[in-house]
Design a protein around this nucleic acid. Sequence first.
RNA 1: GUCCCCAUCGUCUAGCCCGGCCUAGGACACCGGCCUUUCACGCCGGCGACGGGGGUUCGAAUCCCCCUGGGGACGCCA
Length: 506
Amino acid sequence: MVLCSDREPGPGWGGPRTGTPQTHSRLRSREDPMPVRVRFAPSPTGYLHVGGARTALINWLYARRHGGAFILRIEDTDEARSTPEMTQAILDGLSWLGIAWDEGPFFQSGRQALYRENANKLLSSGHAYRCFCSKEALDSRRNASGKPAEWKYDRLCRAIPREESDRRAAAGEPFVVRCDVPKGKLAWDDVVKGRIEFDSSEVEDFVLLRSDGTPTYHLSVVSDDVAMGMTHVIRGEDHISNTPKQIALYEGLGVEPPVFGHLPLILGMDKKKLSKRHGTVSVLSYRDEGILPLALFNFLAQLGANLGEEPFLTMTEVIRRFDFSALKNSASVFDRERLAFINAKVMGETSPCELAVVLRPFLEALLPAGPEPGEAAVRVMATRAKDLRELAAMLVPFLTLDFPLDPKGLEKARKDPGALAALEGLLPRLEGLAEDEWGPAKLEEVLRGHAEASGVKAGALIHPCRLFLTGRTESPGIFDVLAAMGRPGTLARLKRGLDSVSAAGG
RNA sequence: GUCCCCAUCGUCUAGCCCGGCCUAGGACACCGGCCUUUCACGCCGGCGACGGGGGUUCGAAUCCCCCUGGGGACGCCA
């Protein structure tokens, strides 16, 4: 493990410290009577996508801002679709982004007893009842209603007396447990949307326990949020219509509901909900494309929020500025161009040393077991690359002599034999430079002087020089490249370039 | 279909809560120009929006209503 020798902190993504459960201090003060406890609760049925990442990020930000705890809970009760690989991918995605959880990850699959216990509690307190209606019976009533799309459970089984219900259950008749949704308004003050109200007539007596005895989503979420002491439930807008149901459960359980907040969705460029067909949605794939975590972090934090005018901020600064009031309440579009812009900015502010570290996998892919690039090379080339993948490609010519020369550039070089001859004449002069003279200023002086002496324009020397050193027709300032390449490296590439021109040129 | 949410440049957004300082500001992208050894960066300039209709008011992007448009949810999925 190579550590950065310079102490330059860079914009840094304070390395993730994950998975270490800590006991959160329950310090109380007058202003903050209850420590903030928030959570991110993904179901491991897919990769961590940018929408989920943003939800996690906002919860994390809020926890950090208020010295609270951020809890990670994996909702893996859908055994058919959940996989350990997806769980790992979610963990990896969060860690890469720099979002560390304070507690967890907890798995719902191991907490069945709690859910069943709460269902029984609800049953005995009369906030839930057994429903013996079969799926077929439900379907036929739905179809007979005339408006099957609007049909809700007709609450027939709510009228069954307790003794009869107990008797039928004991006799082995299959049943589900439904919530007895109370009459009236189910409302809350949403921290991002404002007041939201549902009339209970719009809310069905939903199922809490399936006929196989397993809990449904609403029961397990509320049970866990209560058990884990969540103070705020901040999640995607697609959960708004679940909220009245969950409020009914809190009421049934006799527990004060948490503060709810519903985040606007992230849309694709076509303004439709972001999905696979919009291309990249997985957080990890941005890592693999050479995006820096701090760039995605900033992009996500600033999407649908107003954190200031700067293109990007340090994590600390994002935390300092974040608040629910900074959030917009309308959906926003995921604009890759903007992400690319932010990434380029972040790269420019990241120390060469840090870049060298995160660059390794990309270099490894291009040049297995190749040497590490020098810091000077990274520093110079990073000024033109917009992502790590590009940077790695630009560094290859610094690490090997075996790199292709741009054909268009080669063609152009051949058309000016005079310049090539002059370039050849430059070699001994470069060779004559002392090690400590090998810097941009001196190199420029020598090259320009030689150009004048040879009767060619400086540019005529510079262009083939750039081509031979970098393989490309564009690069950072040539004298900086020359300097970063070093004397032996420069001479070798210049000779190789000159050779290939004459060889291929016939 | 029913319920819920939302609505400023192509995109991200400021302004909206507490009407006038808004001939609506910034940024990304795009188009010019400058700089220059190339390409970027940077700088300068340009293009470009209050969805529509009614109110309220001396005055509305800002307040109210309707319409339209977009999105979401309507499972013994989560």
